[in-house]
Amino acid sequence: MTVTTIDTAPAAIPTGVARGRGGGGPAPTRIVVAYGFWIFILSDIVMFSALFAAYAVLSGNTAGGPSGRELFNLRNVFIETLCLLFSSYTCGLGMLSAERRQAGHFLIFAALTFGLGAAFLLIEISEFAGMVSRGAGPSRSAFLSSFFSLVGTHGAHVTAGLVWLVYMVGQVLAKGLRAAVLRRLACFSLFWHALDIVWIGVMTLVYLMGAP
């Protein structure tokens, strides 16, 4: 009796249609996991928006100290941008090889992604160190406080991404490219691409508009 009542209504829905709108049964785990992580990334971007707002408001308040025009080196910024862009590209190609279960290709692309991310981080750290040694540290002015919090938070995210990438390579080596590992890799690649999107904002608002 109970079986028939459960069975009547949903059987009319054709299979494979309208997934993602609640019809046709639950979405695959791959889709659900990516959706959950996408919500996290959006909340992270909302946090960045507060730092962007602080920078936009405070960027003119140099308190007699150096302004962005005197501090920023656009050649370095261009190299940093290309590093992140190409690391996004190699990260995407790494995901493709992982989906095709080509572990060797995946490891090569992961190494390239790590190298480009680390190069970005080294340029950024040397830029920060140079500014601090010239007396333009985060305590100098409101402009520099907001600059270091915004760009530094992005750099901290890149650092976390590099640690995560090493951890994922360890998982691939230890467990192989099984479904659960592939889902974690998909989350990592979402994170890495999102960092590149945040960098577009940093590059445009902080560097290009700040050093005309």
């Binding site: 059987a11 639950p26 695959p28 791959r30 190609l93």
Partner: peptide
């Protein structure tokens, strides 16, 4: 039996490999 029909012989949560990503789309994007 009803639920098996509903999910097209695929238990809920099982991977169904399909991806829109390919080498060309990443390269065009780059």
């Amino acid at each position: 039996d009803g639920s098996a029909r509903l999910f097209g012989d695929r238990p809920p949560g099982v991977e169904q490999q399909e991806s829109t990503a390919n080498f060309l789309s990443y390269t065009v994007g780059l």
